[in-house]
Design a protein around this nucleic acid. Sequence first.
DNA 1: ATCCCCATGTAATTTGTTACATGATTGA
DNA 2: TCAATCATGTAACAAATTACATGGGGAT
Lengths: 186, 186
Amino acid sequence: MLAINAMDVKTVCLGMLTDGAASGYDLKKQFESTFGHFFAAGYGSIYPALSSLAEQGFVTCEQIPQDGKPDRKVYEITDAGMARLLEALGNPAPCHKVRSEFLATLCFAHLMPAEQIETVLNSRLEDIDYCLQMILDAESSCTANWPAGVEFVAGFGKAMTQAMKQYVEENRHLLIDGTGKKSATG
Amino acid sequence: MLAINAMDVKTVCLGMLTDGAASGYDLKKQFESTFGHFFAAGYGSIYPALSSLAEQGFVTCEQIPQDGKPDRKVYEITDAGMARLLEALGNPAPCHKVRSEFLATLCFAHLMPAEQIETVLNSRLEDIDYCLQMILDAESSCTANWPAGVEFVAGFGKAMTQAMKQYVEENRHLLIDGTGKKSATG
DNA sequence: ATCCCCATGTAATTTGTTACATGATTGA
DNA sequence: TCAATCATGTAACAAATTACATGGGGAT
């Protein structure tokens, strides 16, 4: 199916380039910081995406020679690229998907020893803290020139992360007490 | 890489089968109701997963002839399957990933007309309500015999969904007012 | 010495999605 | 008559992850 307005890695790269020319390496850093909590992408997706965009005329590529290192390739968005981006942004109902092996695992908590459940829960809490820190770092480094959208998205990430943390902390006992059955304490 | 303890579609199927024998069709319904908000899977993943599990001896398959319809294939987990499942549950840090074209789109809200932003926001709120309803339905239909883990997971879904809804409602104005700049009202 | 940062890319693999293909029964 | 539920599966396609492949410069 020809998805005219998919927000895939290519489209996000295009969007990032509206903020100024950049290399694949630069974009990767942005994927890690600002986009880290909701749109992961590695070099293996970014470099091919940029090549493809250049082939289609949505970006131009200026090759800057360097000694010792591979040429630095700086990409810039074209008018056609801008049009393509706006088209993609026209999707009236972009999706928001969660894929959680964490939750899938806990559905079978009754098959796991309490110790293992604790480990899973603790590692998630660690990850949450890491993620929250990442958002705060990105926020503090450059709030001034952020467009409102990015601010909104960072706030979204914070709100979700905090809600997740709170829920896990307040409800983890459900998974431990009596291995699924309420313990008769009296 | 040999991922010994990946919580993929195959493993989740295996887990569901610990609750009793079932067909691919049955499992699909469970994927939609209980697992819908964090682990989507269609027939295109479930049927091949079950075939593969049967081939590997992790489940057995009883074929029940029916007239008019294809044979109903009822799968049951084996001891080897149970061992495989417990192994998968041993992953100390199962992931929890978000992939959001919604947030990616809003990062570029400053390039979109206000109307379009409203549309995107409204469609997300609709989706949130739909998702919340789904969780509530699943919950009301069979709370009694649910293991604690499933209850925890449903609560998690509710908490996240509600937090999301609240955030969007309380902060949507950030995206509309003056297209990213505070409007000088005085 | 060793590790991290810079800087790019390809190839193989995994994983999942979508569309296609079939077809009876039941209720509105 | 039309839609939904039951019931299974394959083939083509899309997308992303992971590992591989290279290599200088600077800091500790």
